Amino acid sequence: MRILVVGAGATGGAFGTLLQEAGRDVTYLVRPRKQEVLRRDGLRFISPTTDRTHQVQTITAADGPKPFDLILVTVKATALDGVLNEIGAFVGPETAIIPILNGMAHVDQLEQQYPGQVLGGLARIVATLDGDVVRQKMPLTSLNVGGLNGKTVPAQVSDALAVPGVDFSIADDVTGALWEKWAFIAAAGIVNCLFRAPVGRIIDAGGRARILEAITETEGVAAAAGHPVSDAGHAQAVGILTEPGSAFTSSLYRDLTAGLPSEAEHILGDLAVRAHSLDLSTPLLDLTLIQIRAGLPA
């Protein structure tokens, strides 16, 4: 399959490299400046075991129309609106689209624009973009894909994505999996952004009960929306967010305190809208959004 990876950041660069190394036909949709860098220097990916640089195929939005068989949308939510305006030239009637973002708003947007062509995607990888270098911090690299609205994942999509280095699987309920991850990252965002500290310091300050309340709030929204968090997912959230001495902070908090564009509205704002539509009380979520919108201090 001809695969288009939208964005060559941490997630896109990591998965794109592993797909390319397995012989897949991979092209990156990037901005002109990024295209110049990649053409000159290639894409460097440093994993926990290997440091490698590959020459890659790139296009920009101005290079369409040119339909691909599979499109992986790997940008952050802050860039999603621009991407939605750009990928149309690369979507054909049989193109499968897999967005790999947090939350659920992007799924609704893409489904509205390309009904029946969108699959759910859930990636787990700890990677960052250091300048133009993709650095993976932990060995975990998994990709969970599933059909939406009763549809199945085409065999050719599964075959294309099942490559060495990626723990690939098909989700029976990808929507439920997306909600479960959303509930966790929203709880983590509330905890760190509201109390402005890593988990360990919040616990030391007497905040454990409030952390558990945040988890209850976000998981309550998921349950009311028809996607209750599993016992294993709940236990994992509690374990991560209540570990004494932990230096854990959410990526949302790190972006905000660094003055970077954040996914606050995509992760927390959208969850609050859905909570209110379900007549749920989410006081910690609401307080966090007020603090963020008013200007979170570093």
Rank of each mutant, 00 (worst) to 15 (best):
V83I: 03
P99R: 13
P65D: 08
S142M: 06
D130I: 05
T152Y: 05
V163Q: 14
V126N: 06
P164V: 14
V166M: 02
P99E: 06
V73C: 03
T74P: 00
Q113L: 15
L122A: 11
V126W: 09
Q156C: 06
L70S: 06
I87K: 04
P99W: 15
A155H: 08
R40N: 06
I59K: 09
G150A: 04
A162M: 02
T78P: 00
N149M: 07
D167P: 00
L43A: 08
D51Q: 10
V166I: 13
R52G: 04
G121T: 04
A96N: 02
D108R: 12
V73I: 12
A127R: 03
G121S: 06
T53F: 09
P139S: 12
D132L: 05
I98Y: 10
V134P: 00
T60L: 07
D51T: 06
A160E: 14
G165V: 05
A127M: 03
K66R: 12
A62L: 11
I170L: 13
Q55Y: 07
Q136C: 07
G116C: 02
Q55G: 06
V73N: 03
R40W: 00
D51S: 11
Q112W: 08
H54Y: 09
L80R: 01
T58S: 08
L140N: 08
T49A: 07
A62G: 13
I98L: 12
L161W: 07
V118I: 12
P48E: 09
G92W: 05
H106P: 00
V91P: 00
L148D: 08
R44S: 07
F68K: 04
H106A: 05
R135M: 15
A162S: 09
G150W: 11
S169Q: 13
Q112E: 06
H54Q: 10
T95N: 01
G92C: 02
V83F: 01
I98C: 03
A61E: 15
T78V: 03
A61S: 15
D69W: 11
S158T: 12
G147M: 10
A105W: 14
A61G: 14
P93V: 05
P48N: 07
G82K: 06
T152C: 06
L122Y: 13
P139I: 15
Q112Y: 05
Q109H: 09
A123Y: 03
L122R: 13
D81A: 04
E94F: 01
E86K: 03
V157I: 09
V166D: 01
K137Y: 13
L148I: 07
P154T: 09
V153R: 11
T58I: 09
D81H: 04
Q113C: 09
V153C: 08
G147Q: 06
G103F: 02
A123Q: 03
D159T: 14
Q156M: 05
R135P: 01
Q55R: 15
I125P: 00
R52D: 10
V83N: 01
P164N: 13
D159E: 15
V157T: 11
T128K: 15
